[in-house]
Design a protein around this nucleic acid. Structure first.
Lengths: 166, 166
DNA sequence: CGCTATTCCTCCGTATACTGTCAATTCCCG
DNA sequence: CGGGAATTGACAGTATACGGAGGAATAGCG
């Protein structure tokens, strides 16, 4: 086994499993496990492609949402990108810390803080768009066009069902 | 919008998006976002089904790995379930805290700590197996048998490609 | 107009998740 | 056999992720 083994290059999974157990139709084949692995891969690929831009997938999604919907508050941005209210708070804090967004109090309703992307944030989004597209593409690399469409459809359907239970 | 909105019941996503923007072929349709949502749902469904057992998906996976491969150390368990070495450390610590596993020093190699499931851990795994199966099933609910097979195949293929990059 | 319910943000606590580092230990090659 | 390389567990630091509590502010109803 290689010494310092980043997740991206981790491969002994099957080998270890076969050597130790040999189970095949086990936990490792269940959707829960596969989905977690998929998410791991998605984050890893995104990080690789966007290494120069110092931004995470979550921060990217939030930043896009803020850009495309200026004037919304944190709660509504959270709903857009499907984040928890608590989580979005930290993410926006980091974005503000990097001067990618601006948070301003709303005079009309002093509970809310209005969100707006900064010029710097807009520039960053433009700059990393090719990398993001590459990342999205690389994830689905082993699927052909028809399979990609089917895969996306399946994911959408599962998500939609969860959004409207019954 | 309902006041206390848990993630499982969050649904205004589309509504907010349509009202504010109307974008369709945007970030929200990209695999990265869909996969993150899928993982969210998987965790949420698991938590719902296993609420009585006080165990998380990650802890469950680790516990099964320890049960099925007694005598392995943390690094090898991590490779089995595709966790980071740091992450597995915390997970095992919690499992040991709940007395679900036992960690013992290996006399032959004093770097290593041998892992073994406890009787309590084994009982818990037996107890929550039905709930776990229900959870795995509910995730793929909107897909029929053939689609489930295809979906699983796609996920496996993406993961395999990432494990053996070229 | 006052009171209650709601909304918004923030903070706390817990659990993943990964990188990097470190000390102790063992391995292995010369 | 001696010493550098590798391995293992632990720790620090950062970033998601989610539930719950709480305070400030607003809305809505009587």
């Amino acid at each position: 086994m290689p010494s310092e083994m980043a997740l991206g290059e981790m491969l002994p999974e099957e080998a270890v499993r076969d050597a130790a157990h040999g189970g095949m139709d086990d936990v490792y084949s269940k959707p829960g496990h596969l989905i977690r692995r998929l998410q791991q891969i998605a984050v890893s690929v995104f990080a690789q492609e966007c290494a120069d831009h110092d931004i995470t997938p979550v921060q990217y999604a939030a930043l896009v949402a803020v850009r495309d919907n200026p004037g919304l508050d944190a709660t509504r941005i959270a709903a857009l990108v499907a984040f928890d209210r608590s989580t979005i708070g930290n993410v926006l804090e980091r974005l503000e810390g990097k001067a990618l967004i601006e948070r301003r109090a709303n005079p009309d309703d002093r509970r809310v803080k209005i969100l707006k992307i900064s010029r710097r944030g807009a520039r960053l989004l433009d700059a990393c768009e090719p990398a993001v597209l590459r990342a999205q593409d690389r994830m689905l690399d082993p699927l052909d066009a028809r399979e990609r469409k089917a895969f996306t459809t399946f994911m959408r359907r599962i998500i939609a069902q969860q959004d409207q239970p019954k």
